[in-house]
Amino acid sequence: MTHLLETKGLEIRFGGVVAADNITLQIDAGKNLAIIGPNGAGKTTFLNICTGWLKPASGKVYFEGRDVTPLSPRAITRLGVARAFQIPQLFTEHTALENLLIATAARDRLRNPIRALKDTRQRAEMMHLLDMINCTDAAHQQVDELSEGQRKLIDIAVALALRPKLLLMDEPTSGVASSEKFDVMEILVKALAEAEVTAVFVEHDMGIVERYADEVAVWNMGKIELRGTPQEVLEHPDVIRDVIGEVA
């Protein structure tokens, strides 16, 4: 069976620090995977390798059975892997709606040189997306005027606008007020389900992981220490000691 994403023996070092040590992992469509682990465990590095930003010293990354290891981030994005960032990566001189429309311009390769982007037929689709993430009010606001939580949502919406098959999210709730975290995730998970997108997300909040992940992988010192259902993983004594204990 072909997995949606598969990595085999990924290895990378930054000087003396081992950021990926024989990372072998399979992710299947429809199963949202949470990646947890202490800071510096190599979680973001894994996302960077999967999206082509970093090239592993050895090992391979397969997307839908195709070797994407040598491909650039843009080539991997075109295949259907989108990325949302810990620090939202948005076009700060544009409004929230324009950010999404720019994504559709890239997705659909819109080339009409005289038709305004805001007048394209994708506008209704993007307004619906903004509605899905409860950000309709922010549509015409410049993104650097929005709250961190809204920026996070817009960043994820930009990725979703590409209609990806897989979405890699780096700490989707970091910077979001703890009272809003579950609301944000609730909105996100609903939007992901509607768009039929499989998500891999790095997360430090175990409440979020427990409620929204189908599977959990525990990273430590560049290795996958454990993988299983949220219940299996979060009750494991090593995880309680090394990850949950540290977070708490």
Partner: peptide, 29 residues
């Protein structure tokens, strides 16, 4: 034409060079 072009999808993509090339790459461009 220049004003229309700057507002068009191609022009808007061009303007993003100023603010975020990383995101541009992650849009597949």
């Amino acid at each position: 034409f220049s004003m229309r072009w700057l507002d068009s999808p191609t022009g808007q993509l061009f303007r993003t060079i100023k603010t975020n090339e990383t995101r541009l790459q992650y849009l597949g461009m």
